[in-house]
Design a protein around this nucleic acid. Structure first.
Lengths: 212, 212
DNA sequence: CTGATTATATATCGAATGATACATAACTAT
DNA sequence: ATAGTTATGTATCATTCGATATATAATCAG
């Protein structure tokens, strides 16, 4: 039996009530992320944001809440989708040596050639400045670090199970190290370094990460 | 013979003309650095700055120029004096193992317990956001990285000359690695991590940095 | 002393900030 | 068709922003 409530539920999932949006929510959010990434939270004005998102002020507030709420949504977008691209590549490659090399190469590429034009890591180069200043940021940054390190460590653990790495291989330590190398590249990318300059010592770092 | 010009030169170096300042220039600059460090460039308002520095707006502008010039002066202060404390410790210790361990410990301490109350690295956690946004920042950040890495590499080189490290020891690579570890700790410190959590794996990292 | 120079204190400037009120338009449900 | 709901567009709000004009105070040179 279809009750009034369940019908409404289905409808809200398929066709919404009222006038439909004339812009794409996710695309606008991505543009907002680019603005925050490049200019920082305080440096990004509502004018900057609405212009890049292609919408007006009232539309922004109706769809995303105020500036802070929009900011937090862009952080979630980065942590859940955009920023973890190198981690996904790391998880997908079966050969651990290639996986690490691929991860670091992806990081360097990400830090210097992001399609948005922004440089470095959104969290490390922009968001981190607002820790303790904007409510809701601190938890998200800490969670992003923990999540990434756990995923990196899990990939090493899988290699231990496969027998490719020694059973006493320090997965957690190496995951933390790998993460720090990521941060280092991201920082250099934001500071203006080109990719080639950073690619150089990747091979020796791969060896180091696997040494036991 | 003391010319009018030379007398004036001497005088400007000892006692200045006009009404003397009622505040300490360096101390005020340090306070300004703390504000920028904590709140970021755009997040730091003139009200924040003048209040922390204990001076009025006109005094700030007379002594330091506009907001941007004050900002650049705080960056120079950090790069030349405050931020390089761990590097100084690294250079001073003769035993290379203790030197590395001391450097990393100093970094962790610096990232979490700075007397100003600010967390992390001023450059990595605040200034880097304004690269490409505020004129004069990019060069300073890049110079700070280069300078620090060269000093770290020079310390390794000295060890090679002493014969403690192999003559083919990759000083430059290890200096870059050490710098990235620094950035990792600084980032974690800003993200809210406590010092103890980071101190744990310092020993294994010291071994890794010296491995050949 | 007088004149020159520099710092301070008060008051305030125009511009930009984040955020809304209001009327209108576009869609769905009945 | 009507009512209900949501989005858009215009215009604008009060506040805060970075920055100064002006007058006064404190020092030094002569």
């Amino acid at each position: 039996m279809i009750t009034r409530e369940s019908r409404n539920y289905i409808l809200t999932d398929t066709k919404k009530l009222g006038r439909p949006r004339t812009f794409d929510y996710d695309e606008a959010l991505m543009q907002a992320m680019s603005v925050f990434w490049t200019k920082g939270y305080d440096g990004a004005s509502l004018r900057d944001l609405t212009q890049a998102m292609g919408i007006t002020g009232p539309s922004l507030y109706a769809a995303f809440g105020d500036k802070r709420e929009l900011y937090l949504k862009t952080i979630d977008l980065y942590a859940d989708v955009d920023g973890c691209a190198p981690v996904v590549a790391f998880e997908a490659e079966e050969d651990i040596t290639k996986a690490i090399k691929g991860f670091l190469s992806e990081v360097v590429h990400y830090a210097t050639e992001h399609e948005s034009g922004a440089k470095g890591c959104f969290l490390a180069s922009s968001v981190v400045t607002t820790v303790g200043q904007v409510e809701g940021v601190a938890e998200r940054v800490e969670a992003a670090i923990d999540d990434t390190e756990k995923r990196l460590a899990a990939r090493f653990d899988r290699e231990i199970e496969k027998g490719t790495l020694h059973e006493d291989f320090p997965s957690r330590e190496r995951a933390a190290l790998l993460y720090d190398l990521r941060q280092g590249y991201m920082f250099r990318g934001r500071a203006g370094w080109c990719g080639e300059r950073m690619q150089k010592d990747i091979d020796s770092r791969v060896q180091m990460l696997l040494a036991f």
